[in-house]
């Protein structure tokens, strides 16, 4: 698996979520080269943490932020 490396700019774990989303779930704004992306996170996240953005067709943005170090 490859992914674009990024840094968590802001994050929240949502416990009272929107319909169709199984709570709790975590979202993060991730700063990547030249931009900022809102992505779901597999697991929890903290501000300043390094993550990788990988393709995920099940995500509304087509991306998910992961802690797995494989990029």
């Amino acid at each position: 698996m490859t992914g674009r490396p990024g840094v968590v700019y802001a994050t929240t774990t949502i416990h009272v979520g929107l319909p169709g989303h199984e709570a709790p779930y975590t979202l993060a704004y991730v700063d990547v080269d030249g931009g900022r992306v809102l992505a779901p996170v597999d697991g929890r996240a903290t501000v300043g943490e390094r993550v990788a953005l990988v393709d995920d067709p099940t995500s509304a943005s087509g991306l998910v932020a992961t802690h797995r170090r494989s990029a």
């Binding site: 802001a10 994050t11 949502i14 979202l27 809102l38 995500s59 943005s61």
Partner: peptide
């Protein structure tokens, strides 16, 4: 919104930062 970011979530993002 399709990603599940609701209004509390938006303010929570502000708070985390």
């Amino acid at each position: 919104t399709r990603l599940g970011l609701n209004l509390p979530g938006i303010y929570a993002m502000n708070a985390s930062r």
